[in-house]
């Protein structure tokens, strides 16, 4: 499992490069920030429907 957590290898450091630290860290982070607000939209809609 030693190779599971790869060291940062990108040539030029950048914000996205910094998030890209190991297995899928960057993409999981981006997916999460896209999905999370949908919960908020869901509960808001639920409130509206229940009225």
């Amino acid at each position: 499992m030693g190779t599971l957590f790869e060291p940062f290898t990108d040539v030029v450091p950048s914000f996205f490069g910094w998030l890209n630290q190991g297995p899928l860290t960057l993409t999981i982070f981006l997916h999460t920030v896209i999905i999370l607000p949908m919960f908020w939209i869901y509960f808001q809609e639920k409130k509206k429907l229940n009225k």
Binding site: T9, D10, V11, V12, S14, F16, G17, L19, N20, L24, T25, L26, T27, I28, L30, H31
Partner: peptide, 11 residues
């Protein structure tokens, strides 16, 4: 840059 590997792959 290499960070596109992850973004391109999963999206």
């Amino acid at each position: 840059p290499e960070y596109w590997w992850e973004i391109g792959a999963l999206f």
